[in-house]
Computed example of a mutant assay.
Amino acid sequence: MSTEAAPTISEVNPREAWDILSKDAAAVLVDVRTRAEWGFVGGPDVSSLGQDVIQLEWKSWPGMAQNPDFVGALLDQLEATPSRLLFLCRSGVRSLHAAAAVADALAEQGQAVPCVNVAEGFEGDLDADDHRGGFNGWKARGLAWRQS
């Protein structure tokens, strides 16, 4: 039995994530939502920062089965070791699980890359009318995004 603690996942709000990405060119944003979400809802646009978003499904719609190749596929897409990885989903739940899985895999490899969850996610929490996108989250905070 291992006595080592699992890596801790820190959290930032979308504005803080934007600030990190704008100040740290080695930080990487990973959007773990589904293809349907990217296509119908849109996604963060960090091109003005000279960066790209990695889009990689943590779970696939419609059945929401977990992507068994997520960690390996993400690590294969990284061109260099990032200073930190920021994970984003719709509301901050899937991204937290994805961040933990990647942090665990990196720790097993002896790499200390901070994995950060973007709390509130892209669309944020439900408002009083049970709608997303206006209460909090990437879009509601007025950060750059685009519809595909």
Rank of each mutant, 00 (worst) to 15 (best):
S60N: 13
L29R: 03
A105F: 01
P114G: 06
D130H: 14
A128E: 14
E120Y: 11
V116E: 04
A119K: 12
Q55Y: 15
G72R: 07
E57A: 09
E4Q: 15
N136E: 01
D104S: 12
D69Q: 13
D31R: 00
Q109A: 12
G39Q: 15
V12E: 00
G134M: 12
L29N: 01
V71I: 07
L49W: 01
P44M: 08
G137M: 03
H131M: 15
W38V: 09
A99D: 02
L88S: 04
S48Y: 11
P7G: 07
A25D: 12
A105T: 06
L29T: 02
L75Y: 06
S60A: 14
S22V: 05
R35T: 14
A119E: 11
Q51G: 09
V28D: 00
V53H: 06
T3N: 14
G134T: 15
V53S: 06
M1E: 12
G110Y: 06
A100P: 05
G133C: 09
E57R: 00
G121L: 02
A119L: 11
P14G: 05
G72C: 07
N67C: 06
G42R: 05
A99G: 05
L78P: 05
T8L: 10
L126Y: 14
A107F: 04
G42A: 10
V46S: 02
R141A: 13
L49S: 03
D104I: 10
F122W: 08
V118R: 01
D76A: 15
C89P: 00
V93S: 11
V53F: 07
D127I: 08
R141E: 13
P7W: 02
R94P: 07
N67G: 04
P44T: 08
D19V: 08
Q111C: 05
F122Q: 05
G110V: 05
R33K: 09
D104W: 03
G63W: 13
R84G: 06
G142R: 04
E16H: 08
W38E: 02
H131V: 13
P44G: 08
D104V: 11
V116L: 00
I9L: 05
V53I: 09
R33E: 09
A98R: 01
A140E: 07
E11T: 12
V71P: 03
D127V: 07
V12W: 06
A5V: 11
D76H: 11
G63K: 13
P7H: 04
A98I: 00
H131K: 15
I54V: 12
P62I: 10
G134P: 07
D130K: 15
D24N: 12
D129Q: 15
F87R: 05
Q77S: 13
T8V: 13
L88P: 01
G133A: 10
S47M: 10
D69W: 10
T8S: 09
A6W: 04
L88F: 00
W18Y: 11
R94L: 09
L75R: 08
L21K: 03
A27E: 06
S95T: 04
G133D: 07
V113Y: 03
I20E: 00
D127Q: 09
E108A: 08
R15V: 14
A112M: 11
A101W: 03
V41M: 14
G134Q: 13
W61V: 12
R33Q: 11
G43R: 13
L74Q: 01
E57P: 05
W145H: 15
L96V: 06
T3D: 14
T34Q: 07
G133E: 07
E4L: 15
I20G: 02
D125E: 13
